[in-house]
Design a protein around this nucleic acid. Structure first.
Length: 472
RNA sequence: GCUCCCUUCGUCUAGAGGCCUAGGACACGGCCCUCUCAAGGCUGGAACACGAGUUCGAAUCUCGUAGGGAGCGCCA
């Protein structure tokens, strides 16, 4: 490991003249925390070295691709603040490019047509698995001679194109995160580079595009680590430059399983709609599988400064909402009064005067993480009807009607705590608690003084009077 | 099944053979502040998966064991 870390600085510095990273999602679903983190890391790496960040849409699978996800992608990335320097490129528009390289591979006889049907392949896979062997392509079409190929073509059987994986080859490379890697080509079956319908398959298009787009560093999920030898094989066969790969640990949920819907809100859209700030989300992502000596809420430029390849974690990272909540809290507390007003504007009543709204915000801000949390207090303070919970009712009754009558009479144009206190002749909890109970319907909540300042005087009087008359 | 990856407080992590009596952050407990809840301040408990080996010395290096994960797709 010490070797790995020492080498890392070297690797990055060597290529720092031209650091190009990319984010290459497939638009078949909403952007997930895991994808978002990969995007963030790549973006940070490019920015940290004055390089470029490329966006490429991997939409070769026509069945799964949905246009709305392509749009959502742009929305999510922009929301996070990750601007791309090039793209978006769309693989569905690059068939002509791929064709050239297929041709090249065919000329070099490094690929061969495969006429096996999905059914045959599936059968073969099952039987291998059942026999306790790795489910690899059996090589049925690997050694077809030209005559046999012509015969099958004549039968109008369409073919996919398979890469002929060389035998007995040791494949070594340096992973940016995991260090030296060592694979044997014999463990890899011949894989498809072009589907029967003529579209390019992932192992091929993904690798070829990285090379063609001059991508120097690929940070991606660890699930790609054991696929990397395949992609290197393709690039080497084509004489194309091979990028440096770094495989980032997977993101898991509280149960240790890969992050998915059942772990609650984990798509960027859900998080955004729940009211989380993109700053909070970025800070959380920055610290999942990546460590930093900085414990405070960082801006994106600060993250660029603090991002270190050598601080990438090799073990899976568990996403914990409590951590997201922490960053959200930091963010809320860092809000200026104007920013806080803008943030809470959607939950505040229309046409609320300046003084009342700022009192409300002052009262409620230390208690809220999401606008939704503030909405509850908005209804209590500005809403018509108020429901009282039992402990509050009891506290109000115990205070007695005289207390509330005195208090209500002390309310003039504005309700003011010290005037009320003087009028009732009480202080401390004996004063505050019944007042809080009568005004908010509950015994707990934000500081009473600003709440009172936020509430219309007429409403304060009404609520107090209720208990002066004896509420049933 | 084969190949590869991983394992430090509950969680995110620091850790490059002696700076480790293992540090920080979140969460949790306590105290302070306080009309309450929060917020804030102070403070406490809490981890090197296990077993061998190398070494004067191992969280760190080696081997093994256990457990977890990924890949082996005409998905990406």
């Amino acid at each position: 490991m010490s070797l790995r870390l020492r080498n890392l600085g070297y690797i990055v510095r060597m290529s720092s003249s031209l650091v190009v990273t990319r984010f290459a999602p497939s638009p078949s679903g909403e952007l997930h925390l895991g994808n978002a983190r990969t995007a963030l890391f790549n973006w940070l790496l490019a920015r940290a070295h004055g390089g470029r960040f490329v966006l490429r849409i991997e939409d070769t699978d026509l069945e799964r691709t949905q246009e709305r996800y392509v749009e959502a992608l742009g929305v999510d990335l922009s929301w996070l603040g990750l601007r791309w320097d090039e793209g978006p490129f769309r693989q569905s528009e690059r068939a002509a490019v791929y064709a050239q390289y297929f041709e090249q591979l065919e000329r070099k006889q490094l690929v061969y047509p495969c006429f096996c049907s999905p059914l045959e392949l599936d059968l073969s896979r099952r039987s291998q698995l059942a026999a306790g062997r790795p489910p690899r392509y059996a090589g049925t079409c690997r050694e077809l001679n030209p005559a046999q190929i012509a015969l099958r073509r004549a039968e109008r059987r369409s073919a996919s194109l398979r890469f002929r994986v060389p035998l007995g080859q040791r494949m070594q490379f340096e992973d940016l995160v995991h260090g030296p890697q060592n694979f044997l080509s014999d463990d890899i079956g011949d894989f498809i580079v072009r589907r029967e319908d003529g579209t390019a398959a992932f192992f091929f298009s993904n690798a070829v595009d990285d090379a063609l787009m001059h991508v120097s560093h690929v940070l991606r999920g660890e699930d790609h680590l054991s696929n990397t030898p395949r992609q290197r094989l393709v690039l080497e066969a084509l004489g194309l430059p091979v990028p440096l790969y770094g495989h980032v640990s997977l993101l898991i949920g509280a149960d240790g399983a890969p992050l998915s819907k059942r772990h609650g809100a984990t798509t960027l859209r859900e998080l955004r709609e729940t009211g989380y700030a993109h700053e909070a989300v970025c800070n959380q992502l920055f610290r999942l599988g990546h460590s930093s000596a900085r414990n405070e809420l960082l801006t994106l430029p600060q993250m660029v400064q603090a991002f270190e390849l050598s601080h990438l974690q090799r073990a899976p990272a568990q996403f914990d909402v409590a951590h997201l909540a922490h960053w959200q809290r930091e963010w809320v507390h860092a809000l200026s009064p104007e920013q806080a007003r803008a943030w809470l504007a959607p939950v505040l009543p229309q046409q609320l005067d300046e003084a009342r709204s700022s009192a409300f915000i002052r009262a409620v801000l230390p208690n809220v993480l999401l606008p939704e949390d503030a909405r509850i207090w908005q209804q209590i303070i500005f809403g018509e009807a108020l429901s009282y919970d039992q402990p509050a009712l009891r506290a109000a009754e115990e205070a007695g009607p005289e207390f509330f009558l005195a208090a209500a009479n002390a309310v003039r144009d504005e309700a003011n705590l010290s005037t009320l206190r003087g009028a009732t002749g009480r202080k401390g909890a004996a004063f505050y608690m019944p007042l809080r109970a009568a005004l908010t319907g509950r015994l707990h909540g934000p500081e009473l003084a600003p709440l009172l300042a936020a509430m219309p005087a007429e409403r304060v009087r009404e609520r107090l009077l209720q208990f002066a008359r004896g509420r049933t």
